[in-house]
Amino acid sequence: MNGILKREALVKWAPLIVLLVLILLFTVLEPRFFSVRNLARIAISSTPALMVALGVTFIIIMGSIDLSMEGTVSVTAVVFAFAFLALGGTVLSWAWLALPLAILVGAVVGFINGLVHVKLRIPSFMASLAMGFVGTGFALLLTGGDRIRVEDEVFRGLLTERWLGFPVMVYVAALFLLIGWFIQAKTTLGRNFYAVGGGEELAHASGLNVNRVRILGFTLAGMFYAVGALMAVGRIGIAETATGNNFMFMSITSVVVGGTALWGGIGGVWNTLVGVLIVNVIGNGMVVIGLPGYVQDAVLGLLVIVAVVLSTDRKSISFVK
């Protein structure tokens, strides 16, 4: 009995322990790692990835997968930038409307994604991957390969304005993290995600409209991707087709490393926060202690395996494909 309890506790806390060990390790090797300036740098690079990872967390809890984030981020970033510049180019004018517009576009892309997956009965990884390509292509069509600069000082205040050493975008991200937690823990929809992920047949037999939950899940994910896109534009000041690059690998790695199981039903937004921080602490720490870039990828790959081994009780799961 005692053994099982220990195992459960370890599984639950493993990702956080990994994060703390990493922070300790990098701090010992280079004390400057643990300075407020550097923690702020890690927070800045984590912010867009966290938003995208939160979106895909809900999908993974349902036992599905969403690979459309790169296309969705690119297309929402580009639409936002065009609308923002067309409406006046500063948050203090009507251009603020571009912010909700971007989130709406993200929701629409996610909604179509969900429809394609559920109504055409295409596996979610295939439907979303295809939608991602459509998004990237559409962004390229809109921009013609150009970059759009968003120079508004007020919008860029997300990066340049600091409270207690951290830029505003970090606090905005924290707010959306709380929204994500609220949806997960306090709404029927959030609980339904777990029901679908834990056992779709059972959820269906209990009278749950599984298809509706799935479509809503993808729509919600699209909205979080859009917030991620806004953060990415806020950080770099450029919207382009390449804005979405790397988000697929980053976000799914983060979710898995954080301890959310790919077969659904286990994990949540706090796991994702820890996962995103682990990935970004490694990315930053490697450069700070002076290890070459290619070692970084290898370490990240190994870490995914270690995290999955530590954070899931694989004996109880027959998922070995």
Partner: peptide
């Protein structure tokens, strides 16, 4: 990101 790391280092 690489530049941020450089700034810390």
């Amino acid at each position: 990101q690489v530049m941020s790391g450089f700034l810390t280092r």
